[in-house]
């Protein structure tokens, strides 16, 4: 998938950088972004719609602190034989509370996150995953402290 970035024009990079910095709760937030960039509001809106439609923008809007609205999250790891990964992934991914699931290079090769309204629900999901896959070793690595969450890709810097 490398190479997709070449489709981003310089104008797109500037727009996405400005959007990553954030926009304000004002009457016309995209007008403010447009003024920052020296383009029209219409261009900002049409470019953002295009970047959302083609999947460059995964989501646009309020970034919610899930803990502040009563949700709790955890990171889990499993050791899954390579040939069973698709089948085990289907079991895990079926739960809407699973927000990320990655194969990583380690003996613990499946890493997924759960975001749920309670620890009880997290434990229930883990119990079902163990039952349905027969894999009983699952690391449940809940966060005890968050030092930083700030996903901001440098699209304009020296690459």
């Amino acid at each position: 998938m490398t190479g997709h970035e070449k489709e981003l024009s310089e104008a797109d990079r500037q727009l996405l950088s400005a959007m990553q910095q954030g926009f304000s709760p004002v009457l016309q937030p995209f007008q403010e972004i447009a003024e920052r960039l020296g383009v029209t509001e219409e261009k900002v809106i049409s470019d953002l719609r295009r970047l959302k439609a083609n999947g460059i923008i995964r989501r646009l809007g309020a970034i919610i602190d899930s803990r502040k609205i009563g949700y709790t999250g955890t990171l889990c790891a499993m050791q899954v034989p390579a040939e069973r990964i698709p089948e085990v992934a289907d079991v895990i991914n079926a739960f809407p509370e699973i927000t990320h699931n990655y194969v990583r290079e380690h003996d613990y090769n499946i890493w997924f996150t759960i975001l749920a309204p309670s620890t009880a629900r997290i434990n229930q999901i883990l119990k079902r995953i163990k039952e349905q896959t027969g894999i009983t070793t699952v690391l449940n690595l809940s966060a005890s402290r968050i030092f930083k969450i700030r996903v901001n890709f440098d699209l304009e810097g020296d690459r």
């Binding site: 998938m1 490398t2 190479g3 997709h4 970035e5 981003l8 996405l16 959007m19 990553q20 910095q21 954030g22 926009f23 304000s24 709760p25 004002v26 009457l27 937030p29 999947g55 460059i56 923008i57 995964r58 989501r59 646009l60 809007g61 309020a62 970034i63 919610i64 602190d65 502040k68 609205i69 969450i149 996903v151 890709f153 699209l155 690459r159």
Partner: peptide, 27 residues
């Protein structure tokens, strides 16, 4: 708008922003 400002003050909304699909921007 008033509720959004309040949610920001209370930390419920971290920011108004975009999340990019990392693979599609080359990361």
């Amino acid at each position: 708008i008033a509720r959004v400002k309040e949610f920001i003050d209370r930390g419920i909304i971290r920011r108004l922003s975009v999340a990019l699909r990392q693979q599609n921007v080359g990361f």
